[in-house]
Design a protein around this nucleic acid. Structure first.
Lengths: 194, 194
DNA sequence: CGAACTTGCATCAACCATGTTGCAAGTCTT
DNA sequence: AAGACTTGCAACATGGTTGATGCAAGTTCG
């Protein structure tokens, strides 16, 4: 391919990114928004969107593919298998929050849509369970809690934290992990008064 | 109105209920499902749905109205202002879960749709905050947690519990409150190993 | 400048969901 | 059995969304 094509492609890629980001912005607020609304938010004509993405499904597929890649990177970067459980928990949380804040819609669709993305998420789920088992062995996680319930609570808190947006990802992660492990009741050292 | 009309109306109301329940079932799985799919799930023709509900919006409005009424009853029945905080928390949780398990979609739409329903939910939110303040005063809730964060966590756990459906509402409520107050980390009496 | 390419605009076809109506058949009550 | 009413079915109109296309204008690079 020529040098010209290369230069033009970088322009095209910029347009593609703009569309993907606009789609995330619009669809996270209204999942049934029209292509027209997405195009408007991206600052391009609707036909341009259709030229870049063959169909509506192709667009959301591209979104989930992009988000899934960033998600996988976020998990990997935290090295959840080799770091001490609590550290890993913080790192994974902060990293994933960074992605989820910007790509919440795409990530929510990733499980039920693309089988490729579903695989990544299933893998992440398995790694999460492994991490929780290590945490349990280290005494960070109570032994009598159902690990799958702990994971669901963890996911729910991530979702909630990503929605709230009050504070940077690191602060959100700190509050999240604190809440996950200690809850909102009186901490160790106090006797609960019922 | 005649006796005949009365008798027939009870038939009609049964149909209405069937449609409302089918709509909840279908829309909770796919919020953008067509009237056709809803009608099919209700076991009636699409025209019948349109005869009972002037428009799609009217249908979901009726759903939210119905769910909101049951939600208000659920909160009231727990007497959250007069019972000790922990007891009230259990009662409210169990009662609300009973409603939310069956009317999750309608309740999720209640906030942004009907202003009437929004008022009920805003009221419930205020009562929730009051309850948490009482809990804080009683030492059941840690003093250094942001009450609005505690409420958001509580809502998220309710959502998650309603989704999971493993166990009866009372058991779900017990697990939920336990997790909310203690988290999943080692309880009081143990020193956390980092 | 000229080539390659992209974009916006206008336009078109097709589809699907929504909402309406008329009519025949059915049910329930009296 | 008769009346009142509801339901299903078929048909229709409508609007909005999707997706495709041709063309003029613009940009970037050589």
């Amino acid at each position: 391919m020529s040098e010209t094509t290369k230069a033009l492609r970088s322009d095209a890629e910029r347009t593609v990114r703009a569309i993907l980001e606009a789609a995330e912005r619009v669809l996270s607020r209204n999942p049934s928004a029209s292509m027209e609304q997405i195009a408007e938010a991206a600052g391009v004509a609707r036909t341009t969107v259709h030229r870049r993405f063959a169909s509506r499904d192709a667009l959301v597929a591209a979104m989930t593919a992009w988000a899934t890649r960033r998600f996988a990177e976020a998990v990997d970067a935290a090295h959840p298998e080799t770091t001490p459980p609590v550290v890993a928990l913080y790192q994974v949380t902060a990293n994933v929050l960074r992605v989820k804040i910007d790509w919440g819609f795409a990530m929510s669709r990733a499980v039920s849509a693309d089988p490729e993305a579903a695989k990544v998420h299933a893998d992440a789920e398995a790694r999460c369970d492994r991490l929780f088992r290590r945490a349990q062995a280290a005494g960070v996680l109570r032994a009598d809690v159902d690990p799958s319930w702990a994971r669901r609570v963890y996911y729910a808190l991530i979702h909630e934290s990503a929605q709230s947006r009050d504070g940077d990802p690191d602060a959100l992660a700190a509050r999240l992990v604190d809440t996950l492990l200690r809850g909102v009741g009186p901490g160790p050292g106090l006797t609960a008064a019922g």
